[in-house]
């Protein structure tokens, strides 16, 4: 479905002799994964609505390196990270927003030791600020009275301590969150981190995403709000294992808000 979104690359900005206010780091999932692309589009829709001047790197962006580093392959990580830092520096980029908590963490916490210092924020933090600043109006009927639960991604929550921004946004949309048994600091991983997303799980009794989806199902929620493309994939697969994929939807915070934008 062709949606009406407006995205420009850094190269396009540069050719016009302009600089955007912020760079949107799309990431591998946001660029290539069919499900995550929907999130990218929803986030762009929000930025368009709020009148944000932003750009993407487009073909000049590479993987942030998180899966390589956490899989133990420092050589590949350094290659990717150093290349990205060169590109980001060449465009004089200072501020970055991303809808992927893994990219968020790596760019924010790991690039500085390699010579790349940027202000990096997660899209839920960015959206929260837009609402606070009055740049984005929130449709308070966007999900009606659907019961919603929220899944903390490890890299936004436990790793970077951001538990409130996504919850505050849902709150602003008058969505009440029914928490899962394990949430916030005690939240259970979806199973994707540490490059597990890209390999078969080790032997065990069950898959981690099945366990987590089970906890979400127990809340009785019909929507699981998430903030990470990998969590979304994992939770959707987990729901399928419980045969609940038709009843319960997994939605990124950005997708929920974008629903309210005409």
């Amino acid at each position: 479905m062709q949606e009406n979104i407006n995205v420009k690359t850094m190269a396009q900005f540069a050719s016009e002799g302009k600089e955007p206010d912020i760079l949107y780091w799309v990431g591998c999932a946001g660029s290539f994964d069919a499900r995550a692309i929907k999130v990218s589009k929803a986030f762009v829709k929000i930025m368009n609505e709020a009148g944000i001047s932003f750009a993407i790197l487009g073909n000049e962006e590479s993987c942030c390196g998180d899966p390589a580093r956490r899989a133990g392959n420092e050589f590949v990580f350094q290659m990717l990270a150093l290349q990205n830092i060169e590109v980001l520096k060449s465009y004089n980029i200072k501020k970055i927003v991303t809808a992927c908590p893994h990219g968020y963490n790596t760019l924010k916490n790991e690039y500085s030791k390699l010579g790349g210092n940027f202000e990096v924020i997660h899209h839920t933090q960015f959206i929260e600020q837009l609402i606070k600043d009055g740049k984005l109006k929130v449709d308070t009927k966007v999900l009606g009275d659907t019961k919603v639960t929220y899944h903390d991604s490890c890299y936004l929550g436990r790793v970077n301590g951001e538990y409130s921004a996504p919850r505050n946004i849902l709150n602003k949309a008058q969505i009440s969150v029914t928490e899962m048994e394990r949430s916030a600091q005690n939240g259970l991983c979806c199973g994707a981190g540490g490059a597990q997303m890209f390999k078969e799980e080790e032997k065990g009794d069950k898959r981690i995403n099945e366990e987590r989806a089970g906890e979400a199902i127990e809340t009785g929620a019909k929507v699981i709000a998430a903030n990470c493309p990998f969590c979304i994939t994992m939770l959707e697969d987990g729901l399928k294992a419980h045969e609940k994929e038709d009843e319960i939807k997994v939605m990124d915070i950005a997708e929920i808000l974008a629903k309210g934008i005409a």
């Binding site: 591998c28 290539f32 487009g58 993987c63 390196g65 899966p67 392959n73 290659m79 990717l80 390999k199």
Partner: peptide, 25 residues
């Protein structure tokens, strides 16, 4: 499973080896 991922990251800068470019989405 990680070996093709490493290869793809090295060759194409993406976790998946795909035909599409990063802007196609």
């Amino acid at each position: 499973d990680w070996m093709p991922m490493f290869t793809s990251l090295e060759n194409s800068g993406s976790v998946w080896q795909l035909q599409e470019t990063r802007e196609d989405w």
